[in-house]
Design a protein around this nucleic acid. Structure first.
Lengths: 249, 249
DNA sequence: GTCATATTTGCCATATTTTGCTGTAATTGA
DNA sequence: TCAATTACAGCAAAATATGGCAAATATGAC
């Protein structure tokens, strides 16, 4: 692998996540942390990102990180993404909401499978640009700076005109009784519209988010067709969902 | 095998993969690495690719980061961007087409000025995310992988619903008689729509592109209100435009 | 055809760059 | 404060770059 490739990769990660960990990059690229450290140093010296202890952040980084510290539960999200990909078939039309899990999914889309992919997420669109086999259609609208997805009437309007095969709905909170909830009103509206635009709703969700509750309701569990977690099928956290009419992965 | 054949082969590989390894090429073509090295050196000297340690990468490899592109052109573009910014007033609604010059413009937008900015360009949207004072509205549609902007009916439709104060129209070719031209049909359609959606059309254009001509016509010079170049006002290249009803910067 | 000349190519010896590793210092979080 | 992680400098091995050289090939004039 060329040094320039690594540089591009790192910059891309920074663009998408606003921050990267040295160790994650080293892991992903299978090189030593020293090499990544040197790469980041170079990119720092040429003002392409900002080097910080343990990694790097984007230059215009606005210190606000919605999820808190561990943006990367890379391991779990990768597992979920791998499971999710098994649901996709050649030639299908899919819809990816925002969120880091869906970003992982986008990253792992097989490069041979022809797909059409709708998304309102800027990072996911950037990621999908590298997949020559995927036709990307971006849902336009006002860009929310926090979530880096488009929101608002225009976006919802565009969603109302489509009907896709599968929607992968990144989920902040899922509760056996209350269903899916969200703390941002505009995102709630977007997600509702996405559900209406899809034949099948898949909810990739890391286990920490199971049982949690936010201010606004998106939909009940009955609107979700498949719930994907990183847990084993017999895990106790999933018990509450087993009686329901939804597939567990 | 002829040298020319090797050159074509290498360029093709670079086009397809965006990068090549010296050793791979030598292996594939059954020639020594020295030969490939010399080939790449030649292609580098004639600006057909970029030589790096261990191989070569395509010229537009790091699409997002203007750093690494040709430095001289970056300087010109920066100058143009600086001039362009003087046209923008607090609270206005602007429209940025794609292109690296507009990307520079986006990067340099003052952080205190409140603005609303429409754009179909993914790199520009990413850049604008860092500007907390700018409301970004992304023109949705099918993403063209080459130009990294959205194109197609949906995008043009969305454009038809807006009327902005200023449109900065990244320009590939401007000709005193033929006007603005472009080589990609879909982008032509987008740019036409952008012109219709704007009260004022500004065309930032580095001097190399003056007088050049592409396959498809976007509009005549009469549709352009302001032409911004990096040249001094008295430069001979601008003479042809001086009699026209357009402002030169 | 022959000779002289120029180009191309592979090989070699010698720099230079890159990379991982080591030991030590600095930073972080509890 | 301590313990763990991360940073940094220096080193050595591997990979790559460079310039010189000679053999092979092509070119062109006679």
């Amino acid at each position: 692998m060329l040094k320039e490739e690594r540089h591009q990769f790192i910059l891309n990660e920074v663009r998408i996540h606003n921050r990267v960990l040295l160790t994650d990059i080293a892991d992903l690229l299978k090189v030593s942390v020293d090499t990544v450290r040197r790469d980041i140093k170079e990119l720092h010296n040429t003002d392409q990102l900002k080097k910080v202890h343990g990694g790097a952040i984007s230059l215009g980084f606005n210190t606000y990180s919605p999820v808190g510290k561990k943006v990367y539960s890379l391991e779990k999200k990768s597992q979920i993404a791998e499971k999710a990909i098994t649901l996709i078939k050649e030639g299908q039309v899919i819809l990816l909401s925002g969120g880091t899990t869906n970003l992982e999914l986008a990253r792992r889309l097989p490069s041979k499978m022809k797909l059409t992919c709708f998304t309102p997420s800027l990072p996911i669109a950037v990621q999908l640009l590298t997949k020559s086999n995927v036709e990307v259609i971006f849902i336009g609208g006002r860009l929310s700076k926090d979530s880096q997805i488009t929101v608002g009437g225009s976006a919802i309007n565009m969603l109302s005109e489509i009907k896709v095969d599968i929607c992968f709905l990144g989920t902040n909170s899922i509760h056996p009784v209350q269903g899916l909830t969200e703390f941002d009103w505009e995102i709630v509206q977007m997600k509702k519209a996405m559900i209406h635009s899809s034949r099948k709703v898949v909810s990739p969700c890391i286990s920490e988010k199971i049982g949690s509750l936010q201010r606004y309701k998106i939909c009940g569990t009955e609107d979700v067709d498949v719930l994907i977690t990183e847990l084993e099928p017999w895990d106790i956290k999933l018990d509450a969902f087993k009686t329901m009419n939804l597939q567990l992965l």
